[in-house]
Nucleic acid binder design. Sequence first.
DNA 1: CGGCCGACCTGCTGGC
DNA 2: TGCCAGCAGGTCGGCC
Length: 327
Amino acid sequence: MPELPEVEVVRRGLARWVRGRSITGVDVIDPRSIRRHALGTEDFIGNLEHATVLDVVRRGKFLWMPLAVTGTDDAPGDLTEPPATAHLPKVALMAHLGMSGQLLMQDPAVPDEKHLKVRIKLSPAEDMPEQLRFVDQRIFGGLFVTSLIPTSDGGPGGLGETPLPEIAEEAAHIARDPLDPYFSFDLFYRKIKNRRTGIKRALLDQSVISGIGNIYADEALWSARLHYARATDTMRRADAGRLVDAVRDVMQAALAAGGTSFDSLYVNVNGDSGYFARSLNAYGRAGELCVRCEGLGLHTVMKREQFMNRSSYTCPVCQPRPRNGRW
DNA sequence: CGGCCGACCTGCTGGC
DNA sequence: TGCCAGCAGGTCGGCC
C-alpha cells in the first residue's frame, strides 16, 4: 500500500536508473493497466518509443517521467535548425502505484513476474538493467501518457532532480504534499476552515493535502490526538499545525526507514519497505493497548471502526469523539 | 459546486 | 475440504 514515503523511495531509486535513457520498446501485457490512457494501447506505445526520460518527478502519490521527444519517425528531410523548444518536455509517462503497483528495474533474462503488466525497454547503459517493469497485482494502479502544463502557483510541478515549472495534467488538481518545499500551511488551513466535513476525510482528500492514505492518516491523527470526525471548520491554527507536523514526522520516519534499501538493484517499492519496518502506533492495533496511555500508567484498548468504507483505529482516551458532533 | 459513495480489482482469510 | 462472503484500499465518475 504505497503512500507518499514509499512513492518517494521509488522516485529516488528510479531516477538513478532511467534519467537520460531512451525508450526502445514497450510491451503492454495487460491493457487494463493503461486504461487511464484514453487513446488506447497503440497510442500509448507510440508516444513512448524513441522518447528520452529526462527525470522522475513526484507530487503526492503521483509519479511521472518528463520525456524529450525527438521526431526521429517524422519525415527525414530535417537537418534544418530544430525549433528551440524541441528538447523541452511536453509530455510525461505517468505512473500511479495504486494499492499494489511496483516499478522494477530488471535484466531481460529475468523471467516475467506473475503480475507483470507493462515492460519498457531502455537503451543500453553500462551496468544498468535494460528493462523497467510495471508489476501490479490488483490493477488499481496504472501507466499513461499525459501532457505537462504550467503550475498554477508558479512553483515546480513536484519533487524531482531538476525541477520544472510544469506539472503532469492529471496531477494538476491535487494539492502539494507536506514534504514539498512549496507546501503552504496557510493554504491548507484556509481549505479546511472552508469545508464542512471531518478531518480524516479532509486528510484523505488529495485536493486539500496530498500523499496521505489511510495508514498515515490514522497515525497522524493519533499523534495529534484528534478524532477522525473532528469538524474541520472548528479546528484552530494550533490544532491544524500540530496535525501537519505529525503528518510530516510520520512520513519522514517512514522515508528514513524505506530509504535504507533503495540503492538495491530493484527499485524496491512493494510498499513493505517503509512503513512495515517502522512501528505503527494506531493502524492495525485494534485490541492492543494505546502506547501513550500505557506510558501514563493507563490501560486503554485501541478500537477499530468503519469509516468511509475503511477501517479507522483510534484511542478512545487520547482521541475522544467530538461532543457537539456536527461534522 | 461540494460532499459522499460505489465501482474498479485480486488474493487472502475465516466461517459454515 | 470446498465454497463463498468479507476485507484490504486509491481514485474517480456520478449522484444528490
